[in-house]
Amino acid sequence: MIENSRSIDRWATAILLCGLVFVLTPMAFVIVTATQSYEEFLRRNFSLIPGGHFAENLREVWTRTDLPRQTLNSIIVGAIAATGRIALAVTTSYAVVFFTGRGRGLVYALVVASIMLPLELMIITAYQVTANVALPLNALANAGGLWSALAGRPLDLQWNLLDSYAGIAIPLMAQGSCTLILVQFFRTIPPQLARAAIIDGAGPLRFLWDILLPLSKGPLTALGIYMFISAWIQYMWPLVAASSPARTMAVVGLARLQEEGERIPDFPLQMTGAILVTLPPLILIAVFQRRIVRGLTLSEK
């Protein structure tokens, strides 16, 4: 910095240390507890002495709980949601940035407005829509008794997405932040590129596929990873949208480990589960930290 202010640097270092301690302490406790056996834990209660039972606890988690399958579910839902969000955001932002025509502003506003109200707020009715996605078709066809007049009875289509991967993943895509970030990014791309493509005789789709997408590979991967993690850590929607153990996601499964009614909770087991559930996204973050940061701060320029 400018002046050689050692005292400020010392303060800043102290602050950063405090922050690091705050962030890392819970993680350290989780790891220590996960190495203790249930009996050790009951005897000593909370303690900082690591035990040698991590492998055992892991085996417990692997065989006695549903977490392995639920982790697979999280991977599947995370992958669907991330790819879906990126795909939807790419096409929409492409249309918004590179095309002339009316309605672009409105489309953009409709998409961005969805950032302000998270899915958690409208959980009751989102659940109802997912229970029958054909709802609006029925309502439209039956408006004013139209369908009854034509077919003799009201239209009653049923398409229940609850408890399916699509039903968990697609509602998570109904959020516009990805589009917001991509629109900002596409605007930084020199228009000459597209003009040159037109001169070379490339159509809009060709330009998107051959030039724009390869050009955006970096930000798109960063966003994809971030969106994967965002889907992975969802709790409320997967909790209500999936009820069978076959579709439950890992985070929900972890919370269910709390509900052991008949004895003192097996905290070493819970903490081992917490490690299992947290590790995949944590590795992604630690490894791709720079990319993710660049991807996220794109919108801030």
Partner: peptide, 30 residues
Amino acid sequence: MKQEIFRARALPWWLCAPQLLVLFLFFYLP
């Protein structure tokens, strides 16, 4: 928004349609 380049009537709508559909079903409809 200065970057409008392509002129096409239907295509941009087709491009926006998937996201608008998802948003309609799981954001606006709820």
